[in-house]
Design a binder for these strands. Structure first.
Lengths: 336, 336
DNA sequence: ATGAAAGCGCTAACAT
DNA sequence: ATGTTAGCGCTTTCAT
């Protein structure tokens, strides 16, 4: 009636459970005919090991937990895909945790992951607060940070250098002949995607002898509608500009929308470069020139590092600054 | 050194483990001061129950497995979000499984879910093959289908009526005065998103006295580039048409691209309606008129049904055909 | 080569 | 009100 256990197999094969366990794990210590008998019993009963019982004794669940601020975003799900891919290859399952806005559920989820005895955690796109770190520390499992990092604690991370990538984007615009370059930035309080990108923009200007003009940058949210409005304001009130660096693709698209509404043509009248290279960057028209972050690969790397930490008990793995690249599509044009 | 167990708590509180278990579960059978002692010990030791051990005895893991053909698609991740939301509310964790193209890893994953003793499964967007059904049956856990269904087995599902929704889309175009309506369809062998949508299109034409013209429909993949090419061919070779029904938003966007390239204006020269209402439908320009599928809600419903099945051991819950709706944006225009 | 038995951390009778 | 104990299904000494 109930699913067969190792005991049932042992009985059917007329051996002890220890022996069954041995053959199941390819350990030494049984004759070939014993092996046959056991395998046959397994086959006939349709036996499947119970990973829960196994986990109890091994203190390993072959499961990792992954925390996202928003699982359903294109950004998160690309990372997730990479994580899952490697995890399953290496025999791990992944529990997804949506921490919701401002990590409202982060603590609760860490709790759950702890009770569920996950072997490791990947923490993405959010600032690692002290309280998070404390409970993770108590869990005594490895963590990997993705698209975020911690100044305070030395935890391996996988991310691109946002400052450098933003610098790259801005510099590209400059190389194309633009001098009046506006920016749509996230909050400067945002240590992940806000401040660093703004800094990169500013530095690129400085290095090219272009004076920074505060009225050329609009600071707002990473969201289409808000960005459309911000861009509209920029267009109305700011000094004129021929190019725009948007701190995210979604912002860039909001900006494009605003530009269209003012009758501007892109890239003829205005060049725009985005950041992220989410799937829809190539779906808009004209296709968006942007900074590509290799999200799926970052997920893979994180997964690999984490599992290395789990399996080899390697105390430390190195962090990775992965390289972004700029993908030229059709929203940037040389200034004549 | 090791994380404290219930035994440690019992010792510290100077009671038996049974008593600790009782207060942890709010069962009756202890004095108030005992309760105090226990809670204090829990506090001091930082005790956290071990869900694995609990799962072993309860035969319940408070975990569900979710299978997606592609976790990272906008489509899947919207559903995932809904599932996760309800699951965490009800105290369940979700293991994500990416079955990859053509369910290559489905069998393997079902295996894993079985070993991990998940309490239930949600199976999305793929045909439920016999072999899948067999192992799920052996697992003796409830399943819910999302965006798919089974003729052969009576398994509760959550989906929209694709045929009806496609009918709606086509009929809408007709009501707007269009008579020459092309379609970009998925493979007619695709029982989920292919054939039913095609049928809806055809039926709407028929019911409005419009003759079906085979040369007006292009059958291809649900993918941007392929659709762009298909559309280009349609534009070149098919009889002229004033409107297009695309079986997915991505197809619609590919079609828009092809149209732009031919110098057509949308919706002035050509009306287009899509299907799905993924996030990027509103990001393109002009924003896409399309059939909205309430994916996140469908995820929530599936999660709810599944958990009901798990908890109340309800033998059966009803399937739900959820209603789509048509969202009017800017790609369809009345024919003058 | 094989088996007996002691747990892993917890729950749930069954006693008292 | 509280404790004792027998498992849950498995792995792993330790014997033999």
């Amino acid at each position: 009636m109930n699913p067969p256990t190792i005991k049932d197999v042992a009985k059917a094969a007329d051996v002890s459970v220890a022996t069954v366990s041995r053959v199941l794990h390819n350990l030494a210590g049984y004759s070939d005919k014993t092996r046959q008998k056991v395998m046959q019993a397994v086959e006939e009963l349709g036996y499947q090991p119970n990973a829960i019982a196994r986990g109890l004794v091994n203190k390993r669940t072959q499961t990792i937990g992954v925390l996202f601020p928003d699982v359903s975003s294109s950004f998160s799900s690309d990372i997730l895909r990479g994580i899952e891919e490697i995890a399953q290859e290496k025999g791990f399952s992944v529990i997804v945790c949506n921490t919701a806005e401002e990590g409202k559920r982060t603590m609760k989820y860490l709790q759950v992951l702890r009770e569920k005895q996950v072997d490791g955690i990947v923490f993405t796109s959010e600032v690692l607060k002290d309280e998070y770190f404390q409970v993770i520390k108590e869990m005594r499992v490895p963590v990997i940070l993705v698209n975020t990092m911690s100044q305070k604690y030395t935890i391996p991370y996988v991310k691109v250098d946002d400052r450098q990538a933003a610098y790259h984007a801005t510099d590209y615009l400059i190389q194309k002949g633009h001098r009046e370059i506006a920016m749509l930035s996230g909050s400067l309080k945002d240590q992940i995607a806000g401040y660093p990108r703004f800094e990169g923009y500013r530095q690129a200007l400085a290095d090219n002898g272009i004076e920074y003009d505060e009225s050329l940058v609009a600071i707002g949210e990473f969201e289409l509608e808000a960005s459309r409005l911000a861009m509209r304001r920029l267009l109305a009130e700011a000094p004129s500009f021929t190019a725009l660096f948007a701190a995210s693709d979604e912002m860039a698209i909001g900006a494009m929308r605003a530009a269209f509404e003012q009758g501007l043509r892109i890239p003829d009248d205005l060049s725009i470069i985005g950041y992220d290279d989410l799937k829809f960057a190539r779906m808009v028209y004209p296709p968006l020139t942007t900074i590509h972050q290799p999200l799926t690969m970052m997920g893979r790397m994180a997964s690999e590092k984490l599992i290395a930490l789990i399996e080899e008990g390697s105390t430390q793995v190195a962090s990775s600054i992965v390289s972004h690249h700029l993908v030229e599509r059709q929203t940037v044009k040389s200034k004549p």
